[in-house]
Amino acid sequence: MAKALVTWGGWDGHEPDKVAALFAGWLGEAGMAVEVTDSLSCFDEPEALKSVDLIVPVWTMSQIGKDQALNACAAVAAGTGIAGCHGGMCDAFRENVDWQFMTGAQWVAHPGNDGVRYGVRMVSTDPLVAGVADFEVETEQYYLHIDPVVKVHAVCDFPVADGPHAVNGPVAMPVVFTKGYGAGRVYYNALGHKAQVIGAGPAAELMRRGLIWAARRG
């Protein structure tokens, strides 16, 4: 049976406990054995971490130990998948560049803050988004600094809310992307400011598929 590790904590505003429970439920329904923890001590033992098939971090901001981050990177490089959403993966551990290099992006701004209405457009033919139509959300719109190697599956358009970035003109910002890291798969979805944002509808379907896709194969 595949094993998933869901670890949550950090800024309470992103409801990490609720998001972690949501993801754990989907993974259990997919037939995985799921461990849920509210501690980063799960990253302390490198060999134990490599035995996990999927890591799901739900940590906004906070701090991670250097060895803990390197252990997570080594596990993914060895074949453990990693998947996450919103601030829980790509605004985690802002001071740790190893984490950012592995996960493929870092949040830098959300012009308009929460409550911005914008469209999410599918831009690939990958099975991860097959059959999912373009949709609208009302939530934070993430502006990310992105690893150029990522494979983009869905985007949103900036600017929607005005700000100093708007002078640069329109840009299609990745919302859903994947990449490889050694033998491991990396999946990210920028939605999920609150659990309800990603708890139902197209956003939930994209996230559920991504979690399952990222898990180790074979």
Rank of each mutant, 00 (worst) to 15 (best):
Y187M: 01
A214H: 04
V186L: 02
I55N: 04
S41T: 11
I198D: 01
N71C: 07
V116D: 06
L128E: 03
S51Q: 14
V167N: 09
L22E: 08
G112K: 07
V152H: 11
F177V: 14
P111L: 06
M61Q: 07
A154T: 03
N71S: 10
K179D: 08
E136N: 12
S41N: 10
F135N: 12
P170S: 14
E95S: 12
L5C: 09
Y187G: 01
E140K: 02
M102V: 12
V34C: 08
A172G: 01
D126P: 00
A214M: 09
V52F: 00
A133I: 00
L49E: 01
L128Q: 09
A215D: 01
A105I: 07
M173K: 04
A75H: 08
K194Q: 15
V56W: 01
S39W: 06
G87Y: 14
A190C: 08
V176P: 00
V150E: 06
C90M: 14
L27Q: 05
A130I: 04
Y142V: 09
A190W: 03
N71W: 05
H153C: 04
V137P: 01
K18E: 12
G210E: 05
L54V: 03
E138M: 09
Q68C: 07
P127H: 12
D162H: 14
G9P: 02
T80P: 01
R117L: 10
G81K: 03
T178D: 12
G115L: 07
R216P: 00
A204P: 00
A4Y: 11
L22A: 08
A30Y: 05
S124K: 06
F93D: 00
D162V: 06
D98Q: 14
P202K: 09
P174F: 07
V186C: 02
A166T: 15
K66H: 11
A190D: 03
Y187K: 00
V36E: 10
V36A: 09
Q141L: 13
T80G: 00
Y187F: 15
G169F: 07
D17K: 08
